[in-house]
Lab assay of single mutants.
Amino acid sequence: MAAAAAAGAGPEMVRGQVFDVGPRYTNLSYIGEGAYGMVCSAYDNVNKVRVAIKKISPFEHQTYCQRTLREIKILLRFRHENIIGINDIIRAPTIEQMKDVYIVQDLMETDLYKLLKTQHLSNDHICYFLYQILRGLKYIHSANVLHRDLKPSNLLLNTTCDLKICDFGLARVADPDHDHTGFLTEYVATRWYRAPEIMLNSKGYTKSIDIWSVGCILAEMLSNRPIFPGKHYLDQLNHILGILGSPSQEDLNCIINLKARNYLLSLPHKNKVPWNRLFPNADSKALDLLDKMLTFNPHKRIEVEQALAHPYLEQYYDPSDEPIAEAPFKFDMELDDLPKEKLKELIFEETARFQPGYRS
């Protein structure tokens, strides 16, 4: 834990890192770190609560700039109880001085990944967590956004079992017609939660990839272990087919990539493993919904509104309290091709509203 900075004593240090967030945020305490930044909790002297502050230093890398800009653009436009918001952003007053960006968010005690390492969940908890994931996802999908990296560590939890989806750095506007060349190379989302079509096709992607990830998360809540822990690309596919069985001819016809289709045709026939054999203690309604989410063919996979209306979630289902976005989200430009200098300018502009004396 960093010592509390005395008023006016300059930035606090946390594990050798400068955290320049005073005077409003003090009493910093280390939480963890990701690929390009550290997260601390801090005391907000204005709202009198502890908050989470993520320090991001992305400006050396085009990919990190892209992810940072995506996350900020999306989260500043989203407003939903099951999606983490941005409360404040701290950065230098000029673009030349801006080396880091500090993002202030609600402090959540833990995440689903940490929880599943230590606790076996009751059916009631599984049901409530799944409902909140789908409630947040309904809003995301209504904005025409794909999260693309749903996994237990991106689901934040607090002691009252509130759940918030975080990390929109890989999110995209849904565009089933656009052929994202190089899709697989830039697709760094965790393999275990990846839909089979991501490994088999490169053309376009749809909201059904997020539903697949939610199915993987439900299976993990039922058993405290990942359902498809593939060691590499082909191993991942083999794990999936080992449980779902061989795809039907109709399902194979959806695979545009001939090499991928021929690979699947070359494999020995596998039978589907019954879900109640894998999860003998699970609620039968939970397994019915799991089956509809972990469907090989993305066109037959359940959609988020149908999933919310499934009998497993009937005690929570309330369409009048499951809000959607006001308007579909649009990125003005494809960020993939922009140089990091341009992305830095866009991050600077996007964060201006939090600067003292800002006038829109």
Rank of each mutant, 00 (worst) to 15 (best):
A3R: 14
A3P: 01
A4C: 00
A4H: 02
A4K: 03
A5Q: 13
A7E: 05
G8E: 13
A9V: 06
A9Y: 04
G10L: 14
E12Q: 12
V14S: 04
R15K: 14
R15C: 12
G16A: 06
Q17C: 08
Q17P: 09
V18R: 05
V18Y: 05
V18G: 15
V18T: 02
F19E: 11
D20S: 12
D20R: 04
D20C: 05
D20G: 06
D20V: 14
V21A: 10
V21R: 03
G22L: 07
P23L: 07
R24P: 02
R24F: 04
Y25P: 06
Y25C: 13
Y25K: 09
T26G: 10
T26N: 14
L28V: 05
Y30V: 00
Y30A: 03
G32L: 06
G32S: 14
G32N: 02
E33H: 02
E33I: 00
E33M: 00
G34E: 13
Y36N: 15
Y36A: 03
Y36S: 11
G37N: 11
V39N: 03
C40W: 00
S41H: 00
A42R: 03
D44T: 01
D44Y: 15
V46R: 06
V46T: 01
K48W: 07
K48E: 13
V49C: 06
V49M: 13
R50H: 07
R50Q: 08
K55S: 07
P58Y: 01
P58Q: 03
T63A: 08
Y64P: 10
C65H: 04
Q66Y: 03
R67K: 14
R67N: 00
T68I: 02
E71V: 14
E71P: 00
E71F: 02
I72V: 07
L76C: 03
L76W: 00
R77Y: 03
F78S: 13
F78L: 15
R79M: 06
H80C: 01
H80D: 05
H80Q: 15
E81I: 07
I83S: 01
I84D: 02
G85I: 04
N87S: 03
N87I: 15
I89F: 13
I89W: 06
I90V: 06
R91K: 01
A92P: 00
A92V: 08
P93V: 02
P93D: 04
T94E: 11
T94N: 13
E96A: 10
E96Y: 05
M98I: 15
M98P: 08
K99V: 00
D100V: 14
V101D: 07
V101S: 11
Y102Q: 08
Y102V: 05
I103H: 06
I103L: 09
D106R: 03
D106P: 01
L107E: 10
M108A: 09
T110N: 13
T110Q: 12
D111K: 02
D111E: 12
L112T: 03
Y113S: 08
Y113M: 10
L116D: 08
K117G: 12
T118A: 09
Q119S: 02
Q119C: 07
H120A: 08
L121V: 08
L121Y: 11
L121G: 07
S122E: 08
S122H: 05
S122A: 04
D124W: 00
D124N: 15
H125C: 10
I126K: 10
I126P: 06
C127Q: 10
F129D: 05
L130T: 08
Q132S: 12
I133Q: 02
R135D: 01
K138Y: 08
Y139S: 11
I140D: 03
I140F: 15
I140V: 11
H141T: 05
H141A: 05
S142P: 07
S142Q: 05
S142F: 05
V145E: 15
V145P: 03
L146E: 07
L146A: 08
R148A: 11
R148E: 12
R148P: 08
D149W: 05
D149T: 01
K151P: 01
P152T: 13
P152E: 13
N154M: 11
L156E: 11
N158F: 08
N158Q: 12
N158E: 13
T159N: 14
T159F: 12
T160R: 13
C161E: 12
D162A: 08
D162G: 04
D162N: 14
L163Q: 15
I165F: 15
G169T: 00
L170M: 14
A174M: 04
H178I: 12
H178N: 14
H178D: 10
H178F: 11
T181F: 10
G182F: 11
G182S: 11
L184I: 11
L184Q: 15
L184N: 11
L184H: 10
T185A: 10
T185I: 09
E186Y: 05
Y187N: 15
Y187M: 04
A189H: 04
A189M: 12
T190R: 12
R191M: 09
W192Y: 13
W192K: 10
P196N: 07
I198R: 10
I198A: 02
L200P: 07
N201K: 15
S202V: 13
Y205A: 04
Y205M: 12
T206I: 11
D210H: 04
D210F: 02
V214I: 12
C216N: 05
I217F: 15
A219V: 12
A219N: 08
S223G: 12
N224G: 10
N224T: 13
R225T: 01
P226V: 06
I227P: 02
F228R: 04
F228T: 00
G230W: 02
K231E: 04
Y233T: 13
Q236V: 06
Q236G: 08
L237S: 08
N238E: 10
N238G: 04
H239A: 11
L241V: 05
G242I: 02
I243S: 13
G245V: 14
S246R: 14
P247K: 04
P247Q: 09
P247W: 07
Q249G: 06
Q249M: 06
E250P: 01
E250V: 10
E250H: 00
D251P: 02
D251W: 02
L252M: 14
C254H: 11
N257P: 07
L258H: 07
L258Y: 07
A260P: 01
N262P: 01
Y263H: 02
L265F: 06
L265E: 07
L267E: 03
P268M: 03
H269C: 10
N271V: 06
N271F: 02
K272P: 01
K272W: 08
V273D: 00
W275V: 05
R277W: 06
N281Y: 15
N281R: 08
A282L: 02
D283I: 06
D283C: 01
D283K: 00
S284E: 08
S284L: 12
K285R: 13
A286S: 14
D288E: 15
D288S: 02
L289M: 13
D291M: 10
K292R: 13
K292M: 15
M293A: 07
M293D: 11
M293S: 03
L294N: 06
L294D: 07
T295C: 06
F296V: 09
N297E: 06
N297F: 08
R301G: 06
I302W: 06
E303K: 13
E303L: 00
E305W: 01
E305N: 03
Q306C: 03
A309E: 04
H310G: 05
H310P: 06
P311R: 05
Y312S: 04
L313T: 08
Y317C: 13
P319Q: 15
P319Y: 06
P319K: 09
D321N: 14
D321P: 00
D321H: 02
E322G: 02
E322W: 04
P323V: 02
A325Y: 02
A325F: 02
A325P: 01
E326W: 09
A327P: 06
P328R: 06
P328W: 03
P328Y: 07
F329T: 01
F331M: 00
F331Q: 02
F331N: 06
M333S: 09
E334V: 14
D337V: 13
K344I: 08
I347F: 14
F348A: 08
F348L: 15
E349G: 05
E350T: 00
E350H: 01
A352M: 14
R353D: 07
Q355S: 10
P356W: 00
G357D: 15
R359E: 12
R359A: 12
R359H: 11
